[in-house]
Design a protein around this nucleic acid. Structure first.
Length: 270
DNA sequence: AAACCATCCAACCGCCAACAG
DNA sequence: CCTGTTGGCGGTTGGATGGTT
């Protein structure tokens, strides 16, 4: 079977999207949803192929997209999950609300991979302590800038020592380090969770059924069970899609998740 | 100031699985 | 089953940008 090309040869535009095109796409999806990506550009009056529209929407225009640098917690999550899941970017993205697989993939290739290579070098001073590796010019911010030479490889036997360092003296920072330890120690448990999720658990109907919904299709719950999405509190998850406080909520969620992991293997029921 | 180089990231490409007819 | 269509995924590319020489 010879596959038809994604885009018609004639008349369809490629390359960067203009603000006007973005506006057209957003307006159309807000009004009509995206039932059929292939038909969408024609109906919306866009000279793009459906695939391009879909990519643009998912990776850039979706209202729940989170912009800006990745937080340290997010980077840790990516590294830990990548260790267990490999290059399954979409699976990793499912654990990071507001982040796309494409974005995570980019961050991994351009940022995290290099950091890991650096820290995994045997004769490295960076092994001594995370304190030296995690530089924070702004102690109130957990955001890692792109130029920051931080490592997120956190050997378990180092985290406690570094928690007491001056760089991590605040309560929040201690909490961060605790979370790192917990993630490291319990990542095996996490691995056992993910494969158990049935595909049917998630619904893609939200956007089509209720265009005003702020719940992204990929995260729509069919059931009341909380399984995926560790960066979000149970309460928030059940009530709606609001990541405004995802960081703090996420901390508690990870805590709850892994503490419960220790107590019981029945993780799906809270 | 210009040339060169490195990095980033949005977008594209090709493949595959699921699904409908 | 078979075939064609569609959506989704991971790998890759190339233009833009910033830094260095």
């Amino acid at each position: 079977m010879v596959r038809a090309p994604c885009c018609e040869k004639m008349g369809l535009k490629k390359g960067p999207w203009t603000p006007e095109e973005d506006q057209v796409l957003v307006s159309y999806i807000q009004k009509h949803g995206h039932g059929n990506w292939r038909a969408l550009p024609k109906q919306a009056g866009l000279l793009r192929c459906g695939k391009s529209c879909r990519l643009r929407w998912i990776n850039y225009l979706r209202p729940d997209i989170k912009r800006g640098n990745f937080t340290r917690e997010e980077e840790e999550t990516i590294i830990n999950l990548h260790e267990k899941l490999g290059n399954r970017w979409s699976a990793i993205a499912a654990m990071l609300p507001g982040r796309t697989d494409n974005e995570i993939k980019n961050v991994w290739h351009t940022h995290l991979k290099k950091k890991l290579l650096k820290t995994n070098q045997p004769d490295s001073d960076t092994k001594k302590c995370s304190k030296q590796r995690i530089k924070s010019s702004d102690s109130n911010s957990s955001t890692i800038t792109q130029s920051e030479p931080a490592s997120i490889n956190f050997p378990e036997n180092e985290t406690s020592a570094c928690t007491s360092s001056s760089d991590f003296s605040s309560v929040e920072q201690s909490k961060n380090m605790d979370m790192m330890t917990i993630k490291s120690e319990h990542i095996e448990s996490l691995e056992t969770i993910v494969p158990e999720i049935e595909e049917s658990f998630w619904s893609e109907a939200a956007m089509d059924d209720s265009p005003s919904s702020t719940m992204p299709p990929s995260l729509t719950l069919k059931n009341e069970l909380i399984v995926q999405n560790p960066i979000q509190s149970v309460e928030t998850f059940q009530q709606g899609y609001d990541f405004s406080n995802f960081l703090d909520d996420g901390m508690d969620f990870w805590y709850d998740l892994f503490i419960k992991t220790e107590e019981s293997t029945e993780l799906r029921e809270f």
